[in-house]
């Protein structure tokens, strides 16, 4: 963390490559998250996980096999909702890396939202 800070503090340096800038951004974001771990975790495990599981429920019908009677893709998202929510909730609570966790959850929202918008 401190190493990358040292490498990329000076913006005028030619070493401010794309990779360097990205690393610096992520480090900054990670620091920002880690300064307020309790708040971040509350937000992640609360509203963010709820949104992830709702969006998962909405996205599953587009890729889940329809099954013999053509109902499975509609039924399973509804049945699996409590399990999806629990899985994401425990992930948000138990994971130690706030940056990765945030990225996974936000990515799950973005990716599935994109899928829904494309398919609808």
């Amino acid at each position: 963390m401190s190493n990358s800070d040292e490498n990329t503090t000076d913006l005028d340096q030619p070493s401010a490559t794309l990779r360097g800038r990205l690393t610096r951004r992520l480090t900054g974001l990670s620091d920002w998250l880690n300064r307020r771990p309790t708040t971040v975790r509350w937000v992640l495990a609360g509203p963010v996980v709820l949104i992830v599981s709702l969006i998962s429920m909405a996205a599953i019908p587009f890729w889940f096999p329809k099954g013999a009677a053509g109902v499975d893709h509609l039924v399973f998202p509804v049945i699996l909702f409590p399990l999806i929510w629990s899985a994401f909730f425990f992930y948000a609570v138990m994971s130690d890396r706030l940056l990765t966790t945030s990225a996974v959850l936000v990515g799950a929202i973005g990716g599935q939202l994109a899928l829904i918008l494309v398919m609808i």
Binding site: A68, A69, V71, D72, V75, F76, I79
Partner: peptide, 10 residues
């Protein structure tokens, strides 16, 4: 209870 033939979902 769901659909016209047996399925895992039903």
């Amino acid at each position: 209870i769901l659909g016209q033939q047996p399925s895992a979902g039903a």
